[in-house]
Design a protein around this nucleic acid. Structure first.
Lengths: 138, 138
DNA sequence: GTGTAAATGAGAAGGATTTTCATTTATATT
DNA sequence: AATATAAATGAAAATCCTTCTCATTTACAC
């Protein structure tokens, strides 16, 4: 089933690629760094090189299978692409990531870009804060 | 005048720090990477180490004198803090950076954070696109 | 089955930033 | 003004994340 996605993207169906897909699909949180994927692979008892994880994730991104978040402070985070555009809320304490869509913001961005004479190609919006859980803890 | 700002921040008034401030104030664009500041210093005939530039900019950030933008794809960019919050439009071709404020977006973010149970501490919004100038060029 | 181009793993290399540490400097104290 | 001392500096090494190189392995078309 996933093999088709890989083939469609012009990628050979290899074990590392299938396993990375599997991890992205079954992990308990939707947002994983390359390192997270790498560790999950090892825990799963699968041999893989970190370089391969990065390569595969980048290829998946190119193929539209995953998207890459560029979060403040360093390392990239990947999520399975589900076709729905959304932005992110990040907990500054526990690093939990939640998703949201807001049509008002989407549209205002278009207006602002137009006002400034920009042809908008993309945007990135992150709201940082303390999540419900972490608020309780103190 | 700037010396006061440094003292207030608990920082000794040193030549490197004064010069970095001067560069931030007089540069032709408001948004400079550490490397940009470093080069400007050298062109100005001032000796400085790159490590010092990074240190000083980070301290200035801590003191609220500058803010750090975390743009997609690598290196940080700094701008003099003028008290006014704003977001950024970035040209994907020439890397020009423009600023904007939008009250509608600001407020929607508050609403969204509240809906998700987050205590919002900060946010980062970047709109990417092709600027007016670069549209003409092709 | 076999050839070939693509994929892999290990380690080296890369870029941005931070750290270490010996030396210098600003400022508080004589 | 001289001095003590804590902070600041510069250079180089170290770190972090990511990409590249290259020799070896593998998927897949014939």
């Amino acid at each position: 089933m996933e093999s088709q996605d890989l083939r469609k993207a012009g990628l050979k169906v290899t074990l590392p690629r299938l396993k990375v897909l599997e991890i992205l699909e079954t992990a308990d949180h939707r947002h994983l760094s390359a390192e997270d994927v790498y560790k999950a692979m090892l825990e799963m008892g699968e041999e893989i090189g970190l370089a391969t994880v990065y390569r595969v994730l980048t290829q998946f991104e190119g193929a539209g299978l995953v998207s890459r978040l560029s979060i403040e402070g360093g390392h990239a985070v990947f999520e399975l692409e589900d076709g729905s555009h959304h932005d992110h809320l990040l907990c500054v304490r526990c690093h939990r990531i939640e998703e949201f869509v807001d049509e008002v913001i989407e549209q205002r961005q278009q207006v602002i870009a137009a006002e400034k004479g920009f042809e908008m190609t993309d945007h990135s919006l992150y709201i940082y804060g303390v999540c419900k859980h972490c608020q309780k803890e103190k």
